[in-house]
């Protein structure tokens, strides 16, 4: 059996002295779509930032494809065939769309092939290559972020609140694309979301984060679970 894509064990993390995540454990298997849900400020982004090495783990360990990456610098973690789309500061605003896309690959090989592929998903991305990313609309910027992540055919995608501010039709389209891409490459997808219907429309399993701890987890796809999670996240 191939090793777990992402294996987080007993992880604690935070900013300075403040502890935001407490003893979180979760694992994602190859080809699996895993949804991490929770309200604002519950530690979702902190978890992703710790996995990527932006924040040091205070306790616990993180394994990617069976290898311990807990103390690795960010750029080496990011090179392990994973694609990370952060929630804020997602693009180089003053670089062109093309430059932003190129930065999704480690070198320029395979760019033309990848571009052709993502242009099929998002035709607009291929048409606006020389435009500055900062001048795209909010929705177009999201397409660019996802395109950049898909360009390198990653084995793990980590997507932080991509649905925020998107209209329902666009969210629907995104779900289809991510599912199609999983089918094509077998990538695992780690989605961090507040939007329960979106997350549940594609996730295999889920966990709910509440004040830095996992409050609930299970198999997605069941109406009852969705309702219960929605209840935990309600306004």
């Amino acid at each position: 059996m191939s090793p777990t894509v992402l294996d987080i064990a007993d992880l604690s993390s935070g900013y300075g002295e403040a502890i935001v995540l407490r003893n979180v454990s979760l694992s994602i298997r190859p080809g699996e779509i895993f949804a991490l849900l929770g309200k604002n400020g519950m530690g979702k982004s902190t978890l992703l930032k710790t996995v990527l090495g932006f924040l040091p783990a205070k306790r616990g360990r993180i394994k990617l494809f069976g290898e311990d990456v807990t103390a690795l610098p960010t750029h080496l973690i990011a090179r392990k065939a994973i694609a990370y789309t952060p929630q804020e500061q997602t693009l180089f605003q003053d670089l062109t769309v093309e430059d932003n896309l190129r930065l999704g690959l480690r070198d320029d090989r395979g760019f033309a092939e990848g571009l052709a592929r993502v242009s099929e998903y998002f035709p607009i991305v291929g048409k606006r290559l020389s435009q500055k990313a900062g001048t795209l609309s909010g929705g177009e910027q999201k397409m660019l972020i996802v395109s950049r992540a898909l360009l390198g055919s990653p084995r793990l995608m980590m997507i932080d609140e991509i649905s925020e501010g998107l209209q329902p039709s666009m969210i629907q389209r995104l779900t289809e694309i991510l599912l199609a891409e999983r089918k094509r490459t077998g990538t695992a997808i780690f989605v961090v979301e507040q939007n329960v219907p979106f997350a549940f429309s594609m996730a295999d399993r889920y966990a709910v984060l509440k004040i830095g701890e996992i409050a609930d987890d299970g198999v997605a796809g069941d109406e009852l679970a969705a309702a219960r999670v929605q209840d935990q996240l309600r306004v």
Binding site: Q194, N195, V196, P197, A226, Q230, R234, V235
Partner: peptide
């Protein structure tokens, strides 16, 4: 504000109505 559907929608990122309490 608490009773507003609009607020609930943007906060839950487009939550379906039937799932809200």
């Amino acid at each position: 504000v608490v009773g507003s559907e609009l607020v609930r929608t943007i906060y839950a990122g487009g939550a379906h109505q039937e799932l809200a309490p």
